[in-house]
Amino acid sequence: MYLAMPSVVLTMIYPTLKRWTNLAPIPLGLMFGAGTCMGWSDFADPRYHWQVLVPLYAGFCLWTITFETIYQHQDRAEDIKLGLHSMAILFGRHTIPLCTLSALSFLSLMAFAGWQNGHGIAFYAGLVVAAWLLLPRLLSTYIDRPEDCKRLFLGSPFVGEAVLGGLLVDVVYHRFATGFAL
């Protein structure tokens, strides 16, 4: 409950953020990333696993910032006309390099969290698939073509599914390899 409470405040103010800041994807990432903390607290005592939980949370925040910033490019012209703000407007032509850096940081933090938590090859294979799904799409996105931005945005769930799939296979393998029942 304590992990969820800060995200409630962000949920309430998020719809107004584009009226007064270019950085709306950051609170969105913080809000969405809170799910990792809440999910972790269901399975483990978070007080003893900060070395895993912090990079996991930060990584998912960066992933959200990446796909949301690209998504914002679909509305960039309208946002400018309406006097709204967005990270797409702030980054402009630097969006793809900055979002690529954010995406690489997401993948690196996921790998670090996996290493800290003792995950094996299946988890890292899931990260490789996630990188394969995310990076070529990102690097081929032309920010002035809304359909390119939409394509990347709609592909984002597959990135998460690749990470989750690798994690699940790794956990199942580890349970069977060590003789523990599911």
Rank of each mutant, 00 (worst) to 15 (best):
M1E: 11
Y2P: 15
A4Q: 10
V8N: 09
V9D: 07
L10D: 05
T11M: 14
Y14F: 08
P15G: 07
T16N: 14
T16W: 12
K18L: 02
L23H: 08
A24Y: 02
L28E: 11
L28Y: 10
M38I: 10
S41L: 07
S41W: 07
D42N: 15
P46H: 05
R47H: 13
R47E: 11
W50C: 10
V54C: 09
V54Q: 07
P55F: 01
L56T: 06
W63L: 05
Y71V: 05
Q74Y: 07
I80L: 09
G83A: 03
L84M: 08
M87L: 04
L90D: 02
F91E: 05
C99Q: 00
T100V: 00
L101P: 05
L101R: 03
L101Q: 03
S102N: 07
L109N: 02
L109P: 00
M110K: 02
N117V: 09
I121S: 11
A122F: 11
L127G: 03
V128Y: 04
V128D: 10
A130S: 01
W132A: 09
L133R: 01
L135K: 01
I143P: 00
D144W: 11
F153G: 13
E161N: 14
E161G: 12
L168Y: 06
L168K: 09
L168T: 09
V171I: 12
V171C: 10
Y173V: 12
A177M: 15
T178Q: 12
